[in-house]
Each structure stands twice: as C-alpha cells, then as structure tokens.
C-alpha cells in the first residue's frame, strides 16, 4: 500500500462521521446546499459601481492608496510619450520586455537597449535592467490589482526582478471585481491551456516586518506603474 493510499484511506475513514454544516447547529449534513465562494463571492465583496467610469475611479483610488502610479493616456502614442518621460526621470539605462504587444512596442519606443525574456535570459541581466515592461490580462478595479500570467507577463521574473515594473494596459482590460477577473481567466486559458503562473499584483512589493512600519521594495519592485490608454 502506498503512502497515497494510506492517506486516502485515513481520510475516508475519518469522513465516515459527517460534520454538520457550519452554523446549522447540527441539523444540516448534506453538502448539496452549501454555498460556494466561487458562486456568491460578489454578493459579499466590496461593492463596485456598474459603469466603466466607476471602475476607472475605483482602480485609480485603490492604486493611489497602494502607492501604484497610474498614468492615463489618450492613445498608444501618448502612452509612449509618457513612458519616455518616465524613463528619463528614472534614468533607466536598459529595460526588459516580452512578446509583440503593447509592452514591446512601448519598450522599443524608448530608444534604450531592450532585453527580451521570451526565449530565455540571464537573471543577472534582467536584474540590471531599469524596468520590466509587461502586458497584462486584466486590471481589477475592486482591489487595484493587475492580473497577469507567465504568458501575458513575459514569464515569472520579468514583473518581479527589476526594480520598477511597468504595465501597459488598454482601458477595456479593466474589470470590475475579483469574480470577473477569475471568470476572465477561465475564458482566456481554461480548461486545458493554463499557464504555469498566474498572479494578482496589488501594489509595489512591500513589508511591514520591522515594527509594522511599511517599507516598499522588500524583494520585488520598489515602483509599480500602470500606463492605461
């Protein structure tokens, strides 16, 4: 008998005695009537307004609390101009990016050496870049989060190893809340083509481990910028 079988057997023996549904005072045992987080999360989570305007406002408010910088531009060209200003202000000497989408185009417009992660890279080189510029799958208004994956974000390290992470996103990528973000993930990747990493990024890296005092850039980027157009 393998360890796997032994564990499964112990679990099955343990479950012979059912436990009542929480809060039912020992009256409900069937799990059929149980609520699921997946189905009803939206009913309990913080409310987000119905219009895209509400979502933009909420996203921007959350980002400001989280110390994520948000740059709203009129179009792709304007976004590139904004990014060029940022590159000059932050004195980037090289940047890293991926793919062939908005992020790659924006990175190319900077006129700096560009490291691409797509086909593999040396971690030391990526670390030395001034910024990692990525696409994303969605922006989440409810929490001020960026949803990206190993595919939409150029791998696992591009969005976390360089000192500054820049996300280039289109306005229509904004979703109201977390349930919508997970539904979008299912739509994009499920059920068979899941990337090996999916992440919700909510503000620049931080820690409060020393006297519960907030410090940004604990291990990941000290700065996070979202350019939306």
């Amino acid at each position: 008998m393998t360890e796997r079988d032994k564990i499964l057997q112990r679990i099955r023996q343990a479950l012979v005695m059912p436990s009542p549904k929480p809060g039912s005072h020992g009256t409900v045992f069937g799990i059929g009537a149980a609520r699921t987080a997946a189905q009803s999360a939206r009913d309990w989570l913080p409310q987000v307004g119905p219009s895209q305007g509400d979502w933009v406002t909420r996203f921007t408010q959350n980002c400001s609390e989280l110390k994520t910088e948000v740059i709203v531009a009129a179009d792709a060209a304007a976004a590139q101009v904004q990014l060029q200003r940022l590159a000059a202000a932050e004195q980037w000497r090289s940047v890293a990016t991926h793919g062939a989408g908005e992020a790659a185009a924006a990175a190319a417009s900077l006129g700096l050496p560009v490291l691409r992660t797509d086909g593999g890279y040396r971690a030391e080189e990526l670390e030395a870049c001034g910024a990692g510029i990525t696409d994303c799958d969605a922006l989440v208004a409810q929490t001020g989060s960026i949803l990206l994956t190993a595919r939409s974000g150029g791998g696992r390290a591009l969005s976390v190893l360089p000192p500054h992470h820049v996300v280039v996103a289109r306005r229509e990528q904004l979703v109201p809340d977390l349930p919508a973000a997970f539904a979008w993930l299912h739509h994009c990747y499920g059920p068979a083509a899941w990337p090996s990493m999916i992440t919700l990024i909510t503000g620049p890296s931080r820690t409060g481990d020393i006297e519960r005092i907030l410090v940004l850039g604990a291990h990941g980027p000290k700065k996070l910028t979202v350019v939306i157009y």
Partner: peptide, 15 residues
C-alpha cells in the same frame, strides 16, 4: 489589506 501584494497561482513547472 484589500489583497496582499502578490497572490500567485502556480500550475506546473515551466511550460
């Protein structure tokens, strides 16, 4: 926090 900074789901080694 509304969410912690990183909530990451891993679904395999490098694909």
């Amino acid at each position: 926090q509304p969410l912690t900074c990183y909530n990451t789901m891993y679904g395999g080694p490098r694909q």
